[in-house]
Nucleic acid binder design. Structure first.
Lengths: 218, 218
DNA sequence: GTAATGTTTTACCAATCGGTCAAATTATCG
DNA sequence: CGATAATTTGACCGATTGGTAAAACATTAC
């Protein structure tokens, strides 16, 4: 007798690892384009080169696939913000945060769009993660930024909106990629796009945040 | 004999205007949340308080509703960029562009999300508008900005990425509203949010774009 | 080997999807 | 009023949806 989906948690087969990996990869392709509601299990099955009931053998529902995907991706996604170091040099920290976020937009656009789709549609599946772990992490880093402001190391500004604007500007190149390409056209649409964006954003934020009034230089 | 959908173009009834208006309003509610694929005619019908076949009397297909909505909203959406004035004062023009875009994110979040959903999903229905009218408008305004740079009125920067970053930062407050609320929590989540955002973004862009090296002052 | 377990497929289901049709209802106009 | 056109509805259609059941097939353990 075959103990169906319960036994999986006891011992994981090599086949299970491979297939679950393949399914999540396909699910990322599909969910990142069409969002949860707009995606179908059949689409994911076809992308994975597997039959629909076979997918449902590994993930009981469409929602289970989505959730597994979110869980797997969320941790990595927040890595750059976590790396934000209170002890580091403010200018260097912000600069490298922008750079890392931009690299992620370039290298993991599907992951970016997965979250964008989810949040855009009201975040019905990740509300808890936003209000819990995400908020806590941002609160922590906002405090770091606030300390830099108090020390006069960067211009006086709202740390939350600073973080939002870095998220927005960098992820824009993943989420709105078609629009960026359409507007830039053939001329600047080459792979120099990301270098241009990096140069612009670094300039914008570095000049925009340079302390203006009081100086803390010894 | 009732001439169904052809006669509509000849003479428009009062009822037609009202019902089409009601349908598009409901369609905006639904499409802006779930995107084209994720939305159903039944959802729109329920939101409009009408029967499904009645919707389809006014718009032959789901796509026709979506297209009508896009067409109606796109023009208004680009208004702030169109208002960008080459003769005006660069600092004031950019500042008021940011402000107007932010006001639109606050007052028309559904419209913002409608486009965000569409572009995120590869812009299958508005590719032509992006590559045509939008690109032309942006090209024109980019030239204006480039002239300001040449005249030393603002810092040297890529005009396209400047426009992208204004789009990204302002629309973020409409498209990622749930996330913004979740992160800000109860404390700053009040309606002061938009004033705080406006203050931050104005500071960022004004300082970020102030000419640094050569001065053009007479 | 063979028996038990793990995996995959075929056939299927009820619900929902976008959309049609003809009949019923309502508004308009002379 | 009556006739004609405009609007609305209920019943329905084939395709697709998320998901199931059971048997066929493959793998592993002994």
């Amino acid at each position: 007798m075959t103990i169906p989906r319960a036994a999986k948690t006891l011992r994981r087969t090599r086949i299970q690892e491979e297939k679950e990996e393949r399914i999540l990869e396909a699910a990322l392709d599909v969910f990142s384009v069409s969002g949860f509601r707009g995606s179908t299990i059949d689409q994911i099955a076809e992308a994975a080169g597997m039959s629909k009931p076979n997918l449902l053998y590994y993930f009981r529902t469409k929602e289970a696939m989505h959730r597994a995907l979110i869980d797997r991706v969320l941790f990595t996604w927040l890595e750059p913000l976590r790396a934000f170091d209170a002890e580091g040099n403010p200018e260097a920290e912000i600069r490298s945060y922008i750079r890392r976020k931009l690299e992620m937009a370039r290298d993991f656009p599907r992951e970016s769009r997965l979250f964008a789709n989810e949040i855009l549609q009201g975040a019905p599946h990740i509300e808890d993660e936003l209000k819990g772990p995400l908020k806590e992490l941002v609160d922590e880093k906002a405090e770091v930024i606030r300390a830099w402001v108090r020390a006069g190391k960067i211009a006086k500004c709202d740390p939350y909106h600073l973080i939002f604007s870095i998220w927005a500007t960098t992820q824009h190149y993943a989420d709105f990629d078609v629009q960026v390409r359409a507007v830039l056209g053939q001329n600047h649409a080459g792979e120099g796009r990301f270098e241009d964006a990096a140069r612009f954003l670094e300039q914008l934020f570095m000049n925009g945040l340079r302390p203006r009034q009081a100086s803390s230089a010894p």
